[in-house]
Design a protein around this nucleic acid. Structure first.
Length: 431
RNA sequence: GUGGACGUAGCUCAGCUGGUAGAGCCCCGGAUUGUGAUUCCGGCCGUCGCGGGUUCGAGUCCCGUCGUCCACCCCA
């Protein structure tokens, strides 16, 4: 036996048992976005490495050590997207979409980060992504958050906590960063290894350290909210008002920071405690400078990303089951003539009875065997086409799930009869 | 990248202090030849993750490697 080829580390197959949950998530996502007037935009999975370095930030962990980058045959450096925003912004710029001046977009698909896998964290994972361009005011911030709340609710997920914060403008953040540097510098001796490292790189990150010791020091640190510029303060206050009016509960979390450099002002995160150490289920924020930074006309932007695997894990944990699709009828056929006729009947049913799911017994087998397969398929009815039925121009219908007598049906009335039995309506009678 | 636990049939697992592998489920077939689910009978499937080492002999001990899970880091 030759050696089996294993999947790459941290990537997963979605098997038929899991697919319904994914389809459910994706269907609800489409419905909710559509309800808010957001349009789908599909962007490539690979982009120039440069794009991510410039948008996410050279010194973020994602860019420094988690990107799947490679040289293609032409010597260009290509990267598998680690997140969606950069590509969406690029698409909006390179296709001239910003001439619309206001855009509400969404996309969905795989992202890649070369991290060490653990609970809720994979090397290939999937995100649902929302982005809005050209809106300056806090109303869009509120809309995006309300939209995410509705999506989560529609999925049946409760008990999620919404955290919000404002990072202010780049200028006000710089001021705050200095204050923070001074504060933590004064406590440097008490800082752990990671925090000392962050002190040099990005002191903001010390704020969300999980180390209880650090949390104690963090508790005394100056608050970002206090060093916000006036406009950012007003923006944030207005957002809070919108959320209250919409009945969305939230916590202002002054230590909430993001791992990507491009965020300004509003940042938020939906968290759960049901997923081990990966608490973020959906997170995002405003990125007013990013479009210009990537060469587009100066346009404000804001967006969020939702981790599909994490949502699926939550659905699973909360027992929100999604049923596997089963056939309505399974065709049991005897002999070559039965198989020939059955094939035609099945096509006729699919043609004329909308949404009917018909599974044909393929590969022969005794009637007994075929009935076993019919049962295992989960079908509601077995449709029997034996020598006797063929010669009489009928089919036998046997319920596999209910105690009821097997019935006979003339071929010409089969479409209608099945439509009635299954609550589907045929467009016209079959031939 | 760092640390810990683990890796035996498709799945869940058993295999005491080393003597060359087992159960249940699943799957396939059968129980007088046109009817499934229960029951009974039978069957398939493993170079015990991979590679080295110790030993007369290793699934069982040692080393390496790959992978899974968990935590840190980071993040959706």
């Amino acid at each position: 036996m030759s050696k089996i080829i294993e999947p790459l580390r941290g990537v997963h197959d979605v098997l038929p048992a899991q697919a319904p949950a994914w389809q459910f998530l994706e269907r609800v996502t489409r419905e909710v976005f559509s309800a808010y007037g957001y349009e789908e935009c599909r962007v490539p999975i690979i982009e120039q490495t440069h794009l991510f370095k410039r948008s996410i930030g050279d010194f973020t962990d994602i860019v420094e050590k988690e990107m799947f980058s490679f040289l293609d045959q032409g010597g260009d450096s290509i990267t598998l997207r680690p997140e969606a925003t950069a590509g969406m912004v690029r698409a909006v710029i390179s296709n001239g979409l910003l001439r619309e001046s206001r855009l509400r977009l969404w996309c969905m698909g795989p992202m890649f980060r070369r991290e060490r896998p653990q609970a809720g964290r994979f090397r290939q994972f999937h995100q649902i992504d929302a982005e809005a361009f050209g809106f300056e005011g806090p109303d869009i911030d509120a809309e995006l958050i309300v939209l995410s709340a509705r999506l989560l609710r529609r999925l049946g997920l409760s008990r999620l906590k919404l955290l919000i914060n404002s990072l202010g403008t780049p200028a006000s953040r710089l001021v705050y960063r200095e204050q923070l540097g001074l504060y933590f510098g004064a406590h440097e001796a008490a800082l752990d290894e990671d925090s000392k490292r962050r002190l040099k790189g990005n002191p903001l990150r010390i704020l969300d350290s999980k180390n209880p010791e650090m949390q104690r020091i963090v508790a005394g640190a100056p608050l970002m909210i206090d060093s916000l510029d006036t406009e950012s303060k007003e923006h944030f206050a207005a957002l809070c008002a919108y959320l209250r009016d919409a009945g969305i509960e939230y916590d202002v979390e002054p230590h909430l920071v993001r791992g990507l450099d491009y965020y300004t002002r509003t940042v938020f995160e939906w968290t759960t405690d049901a997923l081990g150490s990966q608490s973020a289920v959906c997170a995002g924020g405003r990125y007013d400078g990013l479009v210009a930074q990537l060469g587009g006309a100066d346009t404000p932007g804001i967006g969020w990303a939702m981790g599909q695997e994490r949502i699926i894990m939550l659905l699973d944990k909360l027992g929100i089951a999604t049923m596997r699709e089963r056939p309505h009828v399974y065709l049991v056929m005897a002999g070559t003539s039965g198989e020939g006729l059955g094939f035609k009947i099945a096509e006729n049913l699919r043609e004329n009875v909308p949404n009917l799911r018909v599974q044909l017994n393929l590969g022969g087998g005794s009637l007994k065997t075929q009935f076993k397969r019919a049962d295992k398929s989960g079908a509601e009815f077995a449709l029997v086409l034996g020598e006797d039925e063929i010669s009489r121009g009928i089919v036998a219908l046997k319920s596999l799930r209910r105690e009821q007598a097997q019935e006979e049906c003339v071929l010409a009335q089969l479409n209608e009869r099945l439509g009635v039995l299954l609550g589907l309506s045929p467009t016209r009678s079959g031939s």
